[in-house]
Structures are given as C-alpha cells and as structure tokens.
Design a protein around this nucleic acid. Sequence first.
DNA 1: ATGACTCGTACCACGAGA
Length: 259
Amino acid sequence: MRIATWNVNSITARLPRLLAWLESSGTDVLCIQETKTTAEQFPTEELRELGYEAAVNATGRWNGVAVVSRVGLEDIVRGLPGDPGYEGVEEPRAVSATCGPLRVWSVYVPNGREVDHPHYAYKLQWFEALKAAVAGDAAGSRPFAVMGDYNVAPTDDDVFDRAVFEGSTHVTAPERAALTALRETGLSDVIPRPLKYDHPFTYWDYRQLGFPKNRGMRIDLVYGNAPFAKAVTDAYVDREERKGKGASDHAPVVVDLDV
DNA sequence: ATGACTCGTACCACGAGA
C-alpha cells in the first residue's frame, strides 16, 4: 500500500496537479492539508471519478484538511477532540479515518506566527490536545499514523540554515518538546529519503529561489506507531512535485507499507 | 533546468503562510 501526506496550498488551485499526481504515483491513501475551501466546494466528484472517497474537514479560505482513499474510508472523525480553539473558533485542522488495515490522521498544526504571538501559545495547546487524542491508537496493535504539516522542524538538520531561524517559530525548544511528547505515546518519526541532496526537506518558500537553492525545511512528518513503522518498506519526498508552474510550496511525503 | 511568491477574498490591497 502506498500512502502520502501533502500540504497542497489550496486544493482548488492544485486540482489538476493533484489528480495527475494521484494517478501517476499510484497513491492509495493521501492526507491533505490547507485545502483552503469549504466542504461544499471540495472536489469530491472529481476524486470519485478517479476511484477515491474523501473525508473532509474544511470551512473556508483558511486551513482545511482531508483524507482521500481508494482502499476504504470508515469511522471518520472530523476535528480534534479537545481542540483549544483560537480566539474562540475551532479551526479545521484535523480529520481521521480508517482506510483498510490502517488508521490515519491528517493534521495541519497551527503555524504560531511569532514566538510571543497568541497563535504560538495556541500551537502548543493544540499539540497537547493532539497527544491526548491519539495516545490510545498510538499504543494499539493496528497500524496507525499521524501525518501532516506539523509546522515544526524536529532538529537543526531539518532547516537549511539554523542561523536564519534564530528566534523564529518552528525551531524552538517548546515546539520540539511537543514533538517529543507526542512520540512518547508510542510514535516514531518515519524519516523519508531525499531524492536529491542530503536532507529530506518537504517545504521550500516560494520567494527568493527557495527551491532551486534548496533552502528548505522538513516540517511535513509521518509519525507512526510500532506496527506501522514495522510495515514501512520505503519513504521518500517527491520533490518532483515542487517543480514548475502551479506547484504547492510543499512536496508530498510518500510512504510504502507492507500491510 | 527547479528560476526571483502565491493563495483567496475583496475590490483598486491585504492577511496568512513559515
């Protein structure tokens, strides 16, 4: 089985590339982030024509997540149980589903904006809620993974230049501690291979030739429990999808499983 | 070549992204 996670930065703008990529890559289950659409505007029919069902949690111009599957889609949970909300609003940042032998979450962790911004506190609270929500499945015997845009680079090697991020979100100790706490529920970081260069970056800024200069970050992560990790046969970043006109600023992370 | 931001919404910019 081939599964993947991809922050598409608007599923409407990305639809031609998304549909072509699903077919060419042979992906069975895709976790999508930043759909930037309402559930009503989500391209359910276009995906169905390719043989995929979709579980969607999306409310409008910001955020939005989905799980797309051609191997079954059951027990859908929309939203993060215990989501702390930002300024009184619960944002659509999580959806989970069972896809055949596998249970997955598609998550879009809050960005945080600045370290002293309320959004950063919200980010850390959101991680707490995520940990509580997934702990049971993480310790279970069914293959299980929390996949998505975590908006945290786990180590200094996961950014192109540590000095550039000094004092910024995505690299701070509390954010990394939140990742460690999440792993302590029984999850491990399934680190993909880069298809070029030394580091498996998954995001490159649109500005200032970020991609051609490989000024990237690894912030799209696959956290799997022990049965999941044991089934992994390969994992890589499909950087080809970051190329050319009409690309997302994130590339898909692809994982092959023997399940 | 992978090439100097892009998206949606609103409206003659702007907020958000990381």
